[in-house]
Design a protein around this nucleic acid. Sequence first.
DNA 1: CTGAAAGCGCTTACAG
DNA 2: CTGAAAGCGCTTACAG
Lengths: 368, 368
Amino acid sequence: MGVNPESKKSKKVGSGRRATLKEVAAEVGVSVATVSNAYNRPDQLSEELRVRIFEAAKRLGYSGPDPLGRSLRKRRAGAIGVLYADRLSYAFTDPAAVMFLEGVSFAAEEAGLGLFLVPGGSGTSGVGEGVLSASVDGFVVYCVSAADPLIGAVIERRLPVVLVDDPSRESVTSIGIDDEGGASAAAEHLAGLGHRSFAVVSFKLTLEPDRGLADHARQESANNEDTRSRLRGYKTAIEAAGASWEDVPVYECPENTPEEGKAAAEVLLGREPRPTAILTLSDQLAFGVMEAARGLGLSIPGDLSIVGFDDVSEAARTTPPLTTVYQPHVEKGLKAGRKLIAQLEGEDPGEPELLPTRLVVRGSTASP
Amino acid sequence: MGVNPESKKSKKVGSGRRATLKEVAAEVGVSVATVSNAYNRPDQLSEELRVRIFEAAKRLGYSGPDPLGRSLRKRRAGAIGVLYADRLSYAFTDPAAVMFLEGVSFAAEEAGLGLFLVPGGSGTSGVGEGVLSASVDGFVVYCVSAADPLIGAVIERRLPVVLVDDPSRESVTSIGIDDEGGASAAAEHLAGLGHRSFAVVSFKLTLEPDRGLADHARQESANNEDTRSRLRGYKTAIEAAGASWEDVPVYECPENTPEEGKAAAEVLLGREPRPTAILTLSDQLAFGVMEAARGLGLSIPGDLSIVGFDDVSEAARTTPPLTTVYQPHVEKGLKAGRKLIAQLEGEDPGEPELLPTRLVVRGSTASP
DNA sequence: CTGAAAGCGCTTACAG
DNA sequence: CTGAAAGCGCTTACAG
């Protein structure tokens, strides 16, 4: 029978010391290998013995091999890590990030893996601490600028990696979207409606973000590939329409939130001449722009046309509905996850992929 | 100098075999203990030696102690597990779940822990497989019915646990909200407006969900504590208003989605007498009800009053805005996470807590 | 300031 | 069908 080592300290469930494989083996009078086999290779022992082992396990409160021991031995953590540059909790605040995670989690589930959300941002510990200490088999790196030291930490770990929205490292698998194409389609659309006076609301441009108008040099220094591409798309289309990019104010927001977008728009709409169209780098920013316009008594799209980027589900439900650039967030996450899993299984992750974007014209844009 | 063992197979970054503590020790000519100390207890060795060790580590491509080995030795996974009953990917689809996760992730970040999302649902592997194999230090259990075998798997693991929205296990820490109070406030509100003809759109009632009207017996058999409480709240207030609960059709939806809510409403609104008010168990369901009403040409709230539950951010932005019961999703997640972390640190997780709910009256309710 | 030794809990050839 | 042994990579008293 053996005395249950837990009976002494009978605190709440969960606080007791777990039994181990070794203890179960001792209880049954077999070797640890046999107990291990009972769980992992049922064909390696008689059914009768297997049942006896499970009974003993139950008696001792043993719930199967400890994942920690097993992982070390098998050199497999059983989880894929998702690295997000900002605070983890902030990721759940951004609908685009949430959809992306939905896709990744789908891929993880397919493969029977867990999803480990790695604290990347400025937590209590140093930069990259989370990356260095996460028990994962690989990383999906999302929303992390190529210049961020976090990327260095990830590379150092020498685990399989998929970089999302950042094709800058040739040697690393990546997946992204056609940022430039989407952006230029949006700007072309506005130009086609007759707009010539534009303004842009942008993400942060460097690791040390500013809040305010960004001059040409600063725009050029943008170190997020998607930010660069979207700005380039806007620029190309605006110049093709015969307007000067030099005259287009680009406002940098340190964070991708409606609040920041609102603050940006309030500045941009106070300038002379007042822009007739505002292009943003995300729906989140565009929502803030809409709010600012309402606050100033401007009608959309009568006085001001607005376009977003992302086609988050809410974009279809604002008043008026937002014209924006669709990108397949869930699919991007799914494919990123699958590319990582392919690497884990020694398969070819495939070429860097660029998923298509598409302009979705709704009610927030019209002739000036 | 020593030959870098990786130089032979020069495939993509990430595919190389990692160096180990032992190899670094050999390279420098010190013991593994000293190398370990270099990373974990800088005061235990001379600065000069420490630098030499880091240089050697860099040379060999060693990025610091492997989390797997460290976790096993320290008996700490460095992550808190979140268990969700359905498919993981589905959690990201439900705005209430996303806010909850935001809160949990905030708590995890505070404590320098990762967030491990455990596949609970019907993946490729057996029930509880994800739970049994997750390398975590404890579980936050969300949206899992007390009757679900997953709970059994969690308990078996003998790790610290926090049960969310399910106070049924006395011995386990839990946190929830005042479901009944919120629900009865909502029904009272409708009764106060003069409604006497109600219908209810409910979550699934058992582990084997039905789609359709649920008779009294089935309502009673509901095994989710929050579902039971909300139904009880509706019932109490409706009966207090002098109406008969027997006459109130309760439609069970197998999933908490707008689509299901719509299907439910289409049936309920086809009945005679047509209800003048529909109470739902969530905003997600309520959104579907709104859609169904629109589809049938019914005006809200003129022909039909609708109330939701959750006060998801979208609830304020529908047309008309949704009257609903607010609950503090993020705070619930935050507190659940902190209670778990308190247990991990041997502190008192505190009493089971019941967070307050509050009726938020918006435009979707009016006199019949 | 540094090292030898034990051990965290497990799995996997291999031998019988 | 079962077991003895090695070892996954690390940390931690402990001794010097």
